[in-house]
Nucleic acid binder design. Structure first.
Length: 646
RNA sequence: GCCAACAUAGCUCAGUUGGCCAGAGCAGCUGAUUUGUAAUCAGCCGGUCGGGGGUUCGAAUCCCUCUGUUGGCUCCA
């Protein structure tokens, strides 16, 4: 007999070789119907795999992430089976589950596949799912495994098997399809009730662009048709929040083929919004002891040879521009740090001046591959809210604290609640990969970890993720539909101070090497605004939105009063407009709602007589009558609360 | 850059066995209307059908090519 411990810590005795499925049946038939896989100890197993030792197990259903993973992984097999039946002779790469669904990389040989074929494949998948195919796990020797796939002529699987050790190879067989697979899988395919293939894309074999490109098909499955429909609605909702769509509708930015791809044009409303963000940060930085600097958009190639960027990125940058007479070469600046290093070098520094914090909204240009460009999140010209802090190794901790203060203030002001933080440290087993002394690295890493602990940051620490020049801390936010975006970053740099031979004179009257900290709370203005748009769905925080209130006169008769209201609002620093079109009020309200203007102020006979406004809040409706000063206070208090909250 | 799909008016989209001067709604302009919490009515303007080449008596429609966009892959100082 063996002892099985359940999540609630009850222990049950079963015969050796019992399966998780049998345990589930023992608990309840309903549970057994829903079991997709089981967590056994640290591993996820097939529910029907015999358990031979004492173990703590957890039965996984559709409600568990790991249960979903098993379902989607099994769905990938099922899709492969369908594809193999429809397109005999194709070869398979890998087919894992992903965060939302699964994909399979397929070498379609001479077949050409497009989304038009999805319908056919989906039907086949459902047909196969109804056969209630079971997934049979088989241990296979390496020789047998190699033989099976060489007979099948699938060189991709052969390559995968070559990398595995004999004794740890398993096959899974379901229906007509046998695959090299570690598992786990769901008991049978009957759980897969609804399927949707989502996209087809090229994907390099093993992610190597020098190797063959396979066709990757993405899909997702659900145990209920209704859940698929809900998911599709969710995708539709996501589309409506797309910053590219809202950017056009709200007239924030545009692109022009004439100007060039990946080069955003900020329209007046977008520029105004961005300027407000920049001014806000400038003010916060001024308070925090930053000094503004301004540097040109180009720099001599020698600057980048000194920084090392030329050697590393020169070949994939925009080609240098040259002076017509001397033939001197200049790069469009891909980052601001080399320029800032030269500012540091403009004069000798005493330890008393440190930390020195140089800030610049610096516009940089990078050659991004054309297929990579995406709205404002991935562009070829963008502005970083950059600053470089030159300090001593002992000051790193304080400086990190200071930067985190700024970042958290910003996220609060913009209502980003879900902030993920990642600390990237050295790979402790490969210390020689990194530049800078062991001592300094230890000091910086310790400082970062301490800061995170002292502030109670919910940070994830990743070893081996640091840049070669220093450890870093990145801030990611989730947008309203759960996608993660990397925004702010704080990076320690031991490299550039060496390369630019930066020094300061210490208390001992000797030269010392400062440490540099790169930091950008927004990251890039372009990406940040894009994420902000998607995060708030175009309903910007009141302090940022281009138009805070629009005055809607009932008819032309109240035009003068509307003007008066607007002037009073301006006195209270409220940004407003008047809709003086000869339209009905219902129409003006509708248009203002669509433009996502936070407040609509309706004025007619009654309001004019009593010097008031009738306030309607976007998305909420009528709020009743206000005096103008009361309304102004309401708005200003809300703005104040967001911006000044720390 | 690679794979796939797409490209018709400012926006959203009709327009397929190739065949009358290429259509609609919204937006814009003009006029009428003077309006009370999500669309007043009428008229007008607006397109080298992404660019170029080809097939054809005839191309938005078929073929080639270039450019761009979208979804992935790769990359991201």
């Amino acid at each position: 007999m063996i002892q099985i411990t359940l999540p609630d810590n009850t222990v049950r005795e079963y015969r050796e070789g019992i399966t998780a499925m049998e345990v589930a049946q023992d608990i309840s038939a309903g549970l057994a119907r829903n079991v997709l896989a089981a967590q056994v100890g640290d591993e996820v197993w097939d529910a029907n795999r015999p358990i031979t030792e004492d173990a703590s197990i957890q039965l996984l259903t559709w409600r568990d992430e790991k249960g979903k993973a098993a379902m989607w992984h099994s769905s990938a097999h099922l899709m492969a089976e369908a594809i193999e039946l429809l397109y005999p002779g194709v070869k398979f790469g890998i087919g894992p589950d992903i965060a939302a669904g699964f994909y399979y990389d397929v070498d379609f040989m001479d077949y050409s596949i497009s989304e038009k074929d999805f319908d056919k494949i989906e039907k086949k998948i459902i047909e196969l799912a109804r056969e209630k195919q079971q997934f049979l796990r088989k241990d296979v020797s390496k020789t047998d495994a190699l033989q099976y796939f060489s007979e099948k002529g699938d060189e991709y699987k052969l390559e995968l098997i070559e990398d595995l050790n004999d004794g740890e190879i398993t096959f899974y067989e379901s229906g007509h399809f046998t695959d090299l697979c570690r598992g786990p899988h769901i008991p049978d395919t009957s759980t897969i009730k609804a399927v949707k293939l989502l996209k087809v894309a090229g994907a390099y074999w093993r992610g190597d662009e020098k190797r063959k490109q396979l066709t990757r098909i993405y899909g997702i499955t659900f145990p209920k048709k209704k859940e698929l429909d809900e998911y599709l609605v969710l995708l539709e909702e996501a589309k409506k929040r797309d910053h590219r769509l809202l950017g056009r509708e709200l007239e924030l930015f545009t692109f022009s083929q004439q100007v060039g791809q990946g080069l955003p044009l900020w329209l007046p409303k977008g520029a105004e919004l961005r300027e407000r963000l920049e001014n806000y940060l400038k003010e916060v930085q001024r308070e925090a002891g930053y000094e503004p600097v301004i540097t040109p958009h180009i720099g001599n190639v020698n600057l980048y040879k000194t920084s090392g960027h030329y050697q590393k990125y020169g070949s994939e940058s925009f080609h240098p521009i040259t002076t017509p007479v001397e033939g001197e070469e200049f790069f469009l600046k891909p980052m601001n740090c080399p320029h800032h290093c030269e500012i540091f070098n403009a004069k000798p520094h005493s330890y008393k001046e440190l930390p020195l914090r140089l800030a610049e909204f610096g516009t940089v240009y990078r050659y991004e591959q054309s297929g990579e460009l995406h709205g404002l999140t991935r562009v070829r010209g963008f502005t970083q809210d950059d600053a470089h802090i030159f300090c001593t190794p002992d000051q790193i901790k304080d400086e990190f604290n200071g930067v985190i203060d700024i970042i958290q203030r910003i996220f609060t002001a913009l209502d980003f609640k879900d902030v993920l933080i990642q600390i990237s440290l050295r790979d402790p087993d490969n210390k020689e990969k990194y530049i800078g002394s062991d001592e300094n690295w230890d000091k910086a890493e310790k400082a970062i970890i301490e800061v995170a602990e002292e502030r109670g940051l919910n940070a994830k620490t990743e070893y081996g993720e640091a840049a070669f020049y220093g450890p870093k801390m990145d801030f990611m936010v989730k947008d309203a539909i759960g996608r993660k975006w990397q925004l702010g970053t704080i990076q320690v740099d031991y490299n550039l101070p060496e390369r630019f031979d930066l020094t300061y004179i210490g208390t001992d009257n000797e030269k010392h090497r400062p440490v540099m900290i790169h930091r950008a709370p927004f990251g890039s203005m372009e990406r940040f605004v894009a994420v902000l748009i998607e995060h708030c769905g175009g309903n910007f925080p009141l302090w940022l939105t281009p138009t805070q209130a629009i005055v809607l006169p009932i008819s032309e008769k109240y035009q003068n009063y509307a003007e008066k209201v607007l002037q009073l609002l301006k006195k209270h620093e409220i940004r407003g407009l008047i809709d003086d079109r000869s339209e009905k009020t219902g129409r003006k309200i509708r248009d203002a709602e669509l433009k996502k203007i936070p407040f609509m102020l309706i004025v007619g006979e009654k309001e004019e007589a009593e010097d008031s406004i009738s306030v309607r809040k976007h998305g909420h409706g009528d709020m009743g009558t206000f005096s103008i000063p009361d309304f102004a206070n309401l708005i200003n208090e809300e703005v104040d609360q967001m911006i000044n909250k720390k």
